[in-house]
Structure formats: structure tokens, C-alpha cells
Amino acid sequence: MTAPLLEVDDLHVRFPVAGTGLTGRGKRLLHAVNGVSFSLAKGECLSIVGESGCGKSTAALSIMGLQEPTEGEIRFRGRPMTGPSAPTRMERAKAVQIVFQDPYASLNPRQTVWRSLADPLRLHGITAKSESADRIAALMRSVGLTPEQAGRFPHEFSGGQRQRIGIARALILEPEIVVLDEPVSALDVSIRAQIINLLLDLQDQFGLSYLMISHDLSVVEHMSDRVMVMYFGQLVETGSWQQIFASPAHPYTRRLIAAIPDPAHFGRISAEPFIDAPNMFAPPAASDLTEIAPGHFIRRTALEGAARA
């Protein structure tokens, strides 16, 4: 196994939540991300799944450098991305880029696609007109658009085309890791397949590593190599996609998978019973993950709970 590209070690992100009353008494800390550790290998697609408020987006923002972690370390190729020796925004840009969920809000409406792609290149020292033109043209073709279309403004494109442009912008600096934040959930159903196919093609073509944030388990199963399940700020289960989908061990994972409405099972709605939500204001519980199969980890508290029941 090669050395991991990205390592996240005991990541904590806490937000102060204002108390009530005039004096604002009872200010508490919300543990949005509560002791999350993982690593991402070169060429791998790792997905974080969970529902709204589980901390998956906050974790991704920390990796992007858009949210300062409260505790913990993030390393890229062994080099710390946080703390005093953190890289500058410019250095970080070549390591990690992001594709956003909403293709309508993710492009500057007052810039042509060309400018959105050429400006970052210029900023990073590619000043020769011909070189940046070549790179933009090649990239436009890679994402399934024509170089001529770069002269247009975002509003002249459909949602699916905009998402292609968003992907092009994420790739223009040739990063090694691309964070995909719900990359298809805002798109029309018939467009989703095209974007999923494109993302998989680009991963092959450029040897990209994906960190995908999603709540859509059918997309996760289709795209991922490994899956992490987050529940109220904590990692509750992690394993290969086969392990997670074929033998989910944590009750929350089972509940998530059972909740997917599947066209193949008409008339069936299944829902596993609720499990107790951890208190997000409490200090982290014992963060031990137990390995139940090679590479398949599950939070121990859940196992104990299951054993008690």
C-alpha cells in the first residue's frame, strides 16, 4: 500500500452556540466534527455519507481550508495543512479543489467561463496567453464542452453544463484531490448519469483522488472505493464499499441503507428503528473504532449497545 495522500487525524470542529436571554448565558460548544480520523490514498474515491447536520460538510470545509479546525491535524503528503506551518492559500490550491453542489451559485455570474478559468492560471504563474488558451481548450473538451463555449456567461448554460464548468474550474490547477460536495444532488435525474460518468472518466484520466460528500447512497455505492458513515459529528462505521453495502454493521448504517427508496422494490418502504442520537454538546465519547473485518471499522459504543439489547 502506498503512502496516503491525505491524512486526517482526530479532527474536531466546535462552534459556539449563543445562549438565551439578554446576557447570553449558557453559551455552549456544538461539536460539529467530533474526533474524525481517516486517510485518502492516491486515485481513491472515499465517500462520507450521513444526513444533514452530521458534520460531513464541515469536515470537508476544514480540508479545503475554509474552516479552521478546533483540534486535530490534516496532512497532505505528510505535510501539515493546519497550524503554524500551514501552507498559504496559493500552495493549498494545487493540492485540493472542490466541486460544489449548486451549479447555479458556484459560478460568478459576472465573469465569462473563460475568465473564471484563466484568472486562476494567471495567478499561479501561467501568464503566456497561448499556454493558458491551450489548457482551457483541452479542459473544456475533457468535461464535454467546446472551447468556443468558454466565451459565454454562466447564465447561458443549463444546470448540467454549469456543473461541467464547475468541474473544469476545480481541475484547472491540476490538483491531486478533488472534494465533491453532493456533486449531482441538485441536478435533474437524467443529467446525473452524465455527470457521474464524467467524474469517473476524469478520475481515470487524471488519476484524481476524490473525497465525496453525499447523502445519496446509490450514487455512493456506484462511485466509491471506501465509505465512511458519519452520525452527529462522529464516524460510526467505515469500510470498503462492499463491506458497507453488503454487511453494514452499525445500526445507523443499516437504517440509512434501508431508507433508500429503490425503484426495484416497488411498494416497499423499510425503515430500521431509530438509534439514540449522541449529544452534540457533550465532550466526545470514547472514540475507539473496532476493526470487525480487515479495513472494516465500527464504533464500539454501538456494538456494546447492540450486545445489550
Partner: peptide
């Protein structure tokens, strides 16, 4: 047909490996 084929189905990758999704266009 396009709509149905455009969606990854849960369990289909385990059963048949990763199939390329149908591009409706």
C-alpha cells in the same frame, strides 16, 4: 428508459460490477 437507466441502482454494482450509467442523450 433513459430515466431508469440514468440512476445507479443499489446493489447493482455488487451484482454486475460497475456498469457505465446510461446517458439519456
Amino acid at each position: 428508459r433513459g430515466l431508469l437507466g440514468a440512476l445507479p441502482r443499489l446493489g447493482s454494482r455488487a451484482a454486475q460490477g460497475r456498469q457505465r450509467l446510461i446517458d439519456i442523450d
